[in-house]
Amino acid sequence: MNNIEDFRDYCLSFKGATEKFPFDKTTLVFYVMNKMFCLVDIEEFEYCNLKCDPDEAEELRAQYNGVKPGYHMSKVHWNSVYFNSDVSTKLLKELIVNSYDLVVKGLTKKDQAALNEM
């Protein structure tokens, strides 16, 4: 994903995914059922923040130069994944899916049921 349009389209392709600018005019946040699963700066477009299992987050940071502790996020549960790095597009897409799935698993049963009905 070389540009913000492709990135945005991919993030919005997930069931129930929505987008907002809750913090400022450049930080685009993707949600599922009002829970964040991805953040990206639309002007700089250098990296995105993704939710991650804490153990996997540490492994990814050790394995890839392009994976860092989440910038302005919980360093335990979020990673910053840099686009022009040793992280392939395939891996980036997998990490976005993982982030989405983690958030969905954390939803209430009511929200999960509502999501399944979409």
Score class of each variant (00 low, 15 high):
V29L: 02
F45A: 04
A57N: 15
C38H: 03
T18D: 14
D6N: 14
C11V: 02
K25T: 14
F30Q: 01
S13A: 03
Y10W: 09
D86C: 05
E58F: 07
Y10Q: 05
C48T: 15
P22T: 06
F37T: 00
D101Q: 15
E43R: 10
H72A: 06
D53E: 15
L102K: 06
G70S: 11
Y71Q: 07
N3P: 10
E117V: 00
W78E: 11
P69G: 06
E44K: 15
L12C: 11
K25G: 08
F83R: 08
E58T: 13
S13K: 02
F45Y: 15
E56C: 05
A113C: 03
A114E: 13
N116P: 00
A114C: 02
S13T: 00
I96L: 06
E56N: 10
D6G: 05
T26C: 05
N34S: 14
A57E: 06
Y31P: 01
R61L: 04
Y10L: 13
E94V: 07
D86Y: 04
V32G: 02
C48F: 03
M36E: 04
L50V: 10
Q112G: 08
N3Y: 12
L91G: 07
K20R: 14
M73F: 08
T18G: 12
K20A: 14
D55S: 15
K105H: 11
K25W: 05
F37M: 01
K20Q: 13
L91F: 05
M1A: 13
V103W: 03
F30A: 00
E19C: 06
K109L: 11
H77D: 07
F37E: 00
M1F: 07
Y64W: 11
T27H: 12
L50S: 06
P54L: 09
W78F: 09
R61Q: 13
L91R: 07
L92C: 05
N65V: 10
F30C: 01
E59M: 07
E117Q: 15
D55G: 13
S80W: 09
V97L: 11
K75T: 09
Y64L: 08
D53W: 11
E5F: 10
A113E: 12
D24N: 15
N79I: 13
N49A: 12
A114R: 12
W78L: 10
P54F: 11
S88F: 09
K25M: 12
K15L: 15
A113L: 13
V103G: 02
A114S: 11
I4R: 01
A113W: 03
L91P: 05
Y82N: 00
A17C: 06
V104N: 07
G66W: 01
P69S: 09
F83I: 09
Y10A: 05
V97N: 12
V67C: 09
F23K: 02
V97Q: 13
